[in-house]
């Protein structure tokens, strides 16, 4: 189609898109490149090296980072699993529970953590734990993460579930399945891509969280983001860039999995 007859294309929009992608990717690309810098200075380039990756694992700060990584990942796995299970049950009640008075308030409550600004959520959780005399530590982080991960797990599950007609359960019950069996054999497998997406999203959100964790963690316990933040506050160092690049790689892997899961159709 020539430019004259094409009413869809606007000159400059392609340029803006490319600019947008450059802005999005340039900082990440630069940090990735500099994480392989042999120099101890972050400014001077002295050639390729895996020095700082080695430093992350065996360097002076390695014990701190290993503990932080363990905390981050164990919390992310447990919180995302709990949130996904809770969200799946809630989505079933919202999408398959008919019309009832509690439906809209429930939906409001479930999406509350993404409506309330994160810093407010952080402050309120801290105050709450303090007021009921909970000692801050691993458990408080876990509980807070489970709660705020619920909406992130919930939304993909709800979206998937809405796309599944209830005729499928009806057909199963018509063929002598009880409601529980219809759920386990028909609904659950059909919802699975949504559940996996929800879990991955919750996992990433938990792994990423800095603000809430920073408020509820208490002294002496760190997750990767809080450890990185603490380190950055004392100045940018090359080992932080190596950790960042590894986490970045992990995120890209996860988002790719999630992308394919959401397109994946267990019906073909």
């Amino acid at each position: 189609m020539s430019a004259n007859t094409d009413v869809k294309t606007y000159t400059g929009f392609r340029f803006m898109t490319i600019l947008c992608l450059v802005i999005l990717y340039a900082p990440l690309a630069v940090v990735t490149v500099y994480s392989f810098n042999a120099s101890s200075s972050i400014t001077v380039w002295e050639g390729m090296s895996l020095r700082w990756y080695v430093d992350v694992f065996v360097g002076p700060e390695s014990a701190k980072f290993k503990q932080a990584a363990f905390n981050s990942f164990s919390i992310a796995i447990i919180a995302a699993s709990l949130a996904t299970a809770i969200a799946t049950a809630a989505a079933t009640a919202i999408v398959r529970g008919g019309r009832y008075k509690l439906r809209v308030p429930s939906l409001g409550l479930i999406t509350l953590p993404i409506m309330v600004p994160e810093i407010v959520l952080a402050v309120s959780t801290l105050i709450f734990f303090n007021s009921i005399g909970f000692t801050r530590g691993y458990l408080t982080i876990l509980v807070a993460h489970t709660a705020f991960c619920i909406p992130f797990a919930y939304l993909p599950i709800q979206a998937r579930m809405q796309g599944i007609e209830d005729t499928y359960e009806h057909a199963a019950m018509d063929l002598y399945a009880t409601k529980a069996k219809a759920f386990r054999r028909i609904l659950l497998p059909l919802m699975m891509p949504g559940i996996i997406s929800g879990f991955l999203l919750a996992f990433i959100v938990s792994l990423d969280d800095f603000i809430i964790t920073n408020f509820v963690k208490g002294a002496g316990i760190e997750t990767l983001p809080t450890a990185i933040f603490g380190s950055v506050k004392q100045g940018l160092k090359p080992n932080i860039m190596a950790i960042s690049t590894m986490l970045l790689g992990l995120s890209v892997v996860m988002v790719t999995i999630s992308h394919f899961v959401s397109k994946w159709d267990n019906t073909k």
Partner: peptide, 20 residues
């Protein structure tokens, strides 16, 4: 009776074949 206790079966309009 609930549907799963009725000895009748249905051919649904859009078939409702279990896609998975």
């Amino acid at each position: 009776l609930p549907p799963h206790k009725r000895p009748v079966n249905t051919v649904f309009q859009n078939y409702a074949l279990f896609p998975h």
